[in-house]
Design a protein around this nucleic acid. Structure first.
Length: 109
DNA sequence: CAAGGGGCTGTCA
DNA sequence: TTGACAGCCCCTT
């Protein structure tokens, strides 16, 4: 258990429904630039009954980092769609669904 | 102590 | 718009 993991979990938990964030983005919001991969590995270690919305975390390209044929991929995609996120060709429109952590607003573009 | 691998990223062709 | 490369950080062998 590390402090970094705590921060990651806390930040992931803040992602609002209907929005997504990238691994690198989460890392940065935690004050841990460059920890993108660590974020992924950390989320992977979470228990199945975790309350964390790990499914709202995707890579910077707006795509799920799992093989499209894997169960994890479909599970994540389904949950996101269930929350209102729209997939197009297995990709998310980040310009519309990416979460701008904490302070932003004013200016969709 | 060194080497390999993983739910990544940004840049260049 | 894709595909290939080189960095980055941590954990397990």
């Amino acid at each position: 258990m590390t402090s970094a993991e705590q921060k990651i979990w806390h930040t992931v938990a803040l992602i609002p429904v209907g929005k997504v964030a990238s691994y690198g983005q989460i890392a940065r919001l935690c004050g841990l630039p460059g920890y993108a991969r660590f974020v992924g590995t950390t989320l992977r270690k979470l228990p199945a009954d975790t309350a964390l919305p790990w499914h709202r975390v995707v890579n910077a390209q707006g795509r799920i980092s799992f093989p499209p044929d894997s169960a994890s991929y479909q599970r994540q995609q389904q949950r996101l769609q269930q929350e209102g996120v729209i997939f197009q060709q297995q990709k998310i429109d980040m310009r519309q669904f990416q979460w701008h952590g904490g302070s932003e607003s004013a200016g969709e573009y």
